[in-house]
Amino acid sequence: MKSKIAKISMAAIAVIGLSASVANADTLSDTKAQGYLKCGINSGLPGFASADSKGNWSGIDISVCRAVAAAVLGDASKVKFTSLNAKERFTALQSGEIDLLSRNTTWTETRDSSLGLNFAGVNFYDGQGFMVHKSIGVKNAKELNGAAVCVQSGTTTELNLADYFRKNGMKYKLVAYDSNDQVVKGYESGRCDVITSDSSQLYSLRIKLKNPNGSMVLPNIISKEPLGPVVRQGDDKWFNIVKWSYAAMVAAEEAGITSKNVDSMLKSNNPTVKRILGVEGKLGENLGLSKNFAYNIIKQVGNYGEVFDRTVGMNSPLKIKRGLNALWTKGGLQYSPPFR
């Protein structure tokens, strides 16, 4: 989907962005002064950012905004959400319209190095996967030789698909559609045996099927899409705050602190727990926050595992497995640097 114009405008944004990002360098005091966090989000992506019938935002990306608000302002509800499309998201960050971008943004070298951005972590390891009809009896993507594959045209998904099949010496028949909804219809009407898309998408596409239980998502992931929160370059203090707000959620899961037991954990003898919750040491103060910033995050938003289960995981309609997003102790990639 990348046209020449897009590239040129990206370059222009990069140049202007770099020159503009240096000036406004005290995001922390600005945020404290205005009393709310300016957070840029997706305008509707199941499990990541969506609004319920009352207009309350929720999702795994939203939780990062709320966590930072809880850390900085002590109140997870003090967030002003600005929904952004894919093209304007970086401009909004550079121009100061938002101070934190949590919008399923893939961490890539180009973005990190030339757009004046800093990625503060990875809150969801996504990647391209496959969904098949259970009836065809395929358990692994390597068995898909000769399959008809439905895909949304014009995306990198299509290219990854071609690479994967060529690499493994398999043949496939491409059935391309303009939108995801058409992909679902094509799959249901039997035009193809397989849908490929980002795995987080596959789960929400699966719910749209008439019979969701007749299909399954294969375990193979064929591309890397690390999604994470982004801040402007040039304000290292703010970068640290976002990085450690997120790390606190992961660390809390590692240490077994949840939103329910966090109050009793304050009395824990475990030194790690004591440091995370600010009972001991002054880790929060070093960041320019209060001592109990992690307590606020865990109490009001929850640890990473709770957030994952609630928004995209087993307690949500999407039922995405932890997979790569499990803790490192459980075979995943979520890992917090030590709190000390």
Binding site: S43, G44, P46, S50, A51, D52, S83, E88, S204, P317
Partner: peptide, 21 residues
């Protein structure tokens, strides 16, 4: 440009994971 007018509202409400499809 990320403003939720009537039409965009359909997309947004359609992305509520409790009401997909």
């Amino acid at each position: 440009i990320g403003l939720f007018d009537l039409l965009a509202m359909v997309q947004l409400t359609g992305s509520d994971s409790h009401w997909l499809g």
